[in-house]
Simulated assay, not measured.
Amino acid sequence: MPEPQAVLAPLTESAVFLTLVVEPGGEAAVHDLLPDAGGMIRSVGFRMPEEGLTCVLGIGSDAWDRLFAGPRPAHLHPFREVTGERHHAPATPGDLFLHIRARRTYPCFELARRIVAAFGPAARVADEVQGFRYFDRRDLLGFVDGTENPTGRAAAEAVLVGDEDPDFAGGSYLMVQKYLHDLDAWSAMSVEDRELTIGRRMLDDVELDDATKPADSHVALTTIEEPDGTERRILRDNMPFGSIAGGEYGTFFAGYAADPAVTEEMLTRMVVGDPPGSSDRILEVSRAVTGGLFFTPSADLLDDPPPLPQRAERAPAAPAAERLAVPTMDRADLGIGGLRTPR
């Protein structure tokens, strides 16, 4: 199997989530940068190996057709917004997605700054979230997040595309959403009501038994099982974020899967309910404000990407004074490589 990007990297203390839009005419510049991005990771991460700096780059459905000629990932499509009786999960603009992780924030910041500077006028940042690890891996609602993540071989099987789509083996589908929490409403709830909303006990993170756990709890609605009882898994790398001045507090959801249908079914069950009308209790205090679906190609594909479509045009270079300051690096300095874990 081709070498994946760092989708299976361990959970970290810090992350930067960047959603970018490729400007008209910027396709060639973005395409040219893809093989160089791995060198940027190494140039930042080599000096601080203890930080575990990684970056995963995802490409949206519309951007894929603008950047590459030839076949496309079998299940890549625009994010499908979901509307229920009382809740809504919107689709928002996004052509590229950067999931940057490290132990501390500053390596994430430096790598994000370098990549965005290299894109220059070819792409603009549509959304930025700086995530942080909160207490003992809890979200801002007080519950441990990611408890049921698969590990080892099970994680690779759940997350990585295999022989079912051989041209894109080693890739993964990434769904992202930014959720904002009403912490005042949440704080006004009793601990028992909070536990019934999530489907777990707060203190010890133990899942409630089936007799106690409501059918419209978050855990119940996001547990997807095959007819034979096999649970369909995804890999969550959610992180809390917040702004004291802005009064925004939330969770950034990042879910990797070998088939986006699994994550999409979870979201539909949350918003619409199963049966319809029994939507996820968590949506009473938490609402999605962004939504995107991206394919994260293998590192090998990013090293040697498919050619540009013939219709793609090159954008004019920005005047030097308008470019973000970044250390001068030529192609030899950056190195040639995909978005891999630093070595």
Rank of each mutant, 00 (worst) to 15 (best):
D228I: 06
P342K: 07
C55W: 06
L334M: 15
G162E: 04
H31P: 09
E3A: 13
V326L: 07
P227D: 15
G246S: 03
W186E: 09
P214D: 05
Y106A: 07
A118S: 14
D333A: 15
M202W: 00
L111S: 11
G70V: 13
E27C: 01
I234G: 02
I41E: 05
V125N: 04
F119K: 05
P297Q: 07
P240F: 03
R311F: 15
V21Y: 01
E23V: 10
T263D: 00
R80C: 07
P297F: 03
E3S: 14
P307V: 07
E148D: 08
T212N: 02
P35Y: 08
A245L: 11
D280F: 09
S286V: 05
E3F: 06
M1Q: 02
A117H: 10
P166L: 09
G229V: 02
P297T: 01
T263C: 00
G45A: 14
T151R: 12
L33Q: 07
M270R: 15
G338K: 04
Y256E: 05
P316Q: 08
G58T: 14
G146F: 10
E313F: 06
W186R: 09
F46S: 15
W186V: 09
M40W: 10
G247C: 01
R133G: 05
R343L: 12
P24T: 05
H218F: 11
G52D: 02
V56E: 11
T263W: 00
L8N: 04
L8Q: 02
V191R: 09
T290C: 03
F252E: 09
P260I: 01
C55L: 15
R153M: 03
M175W: 00
T197H: 06
Y106S: 11
T328G: 01
L221A: 01
T212S: 12
E50D: 12
D182E: 07
R137S: 09
D95K: 04
F143V: 08
A154C: 01
E51R: 11
G335N: 04
M202N: 02
P227S: 12
F295N: 06
V161M: 02
C55P: 02
M40Y: 15
R113C: 08
P309W: 07
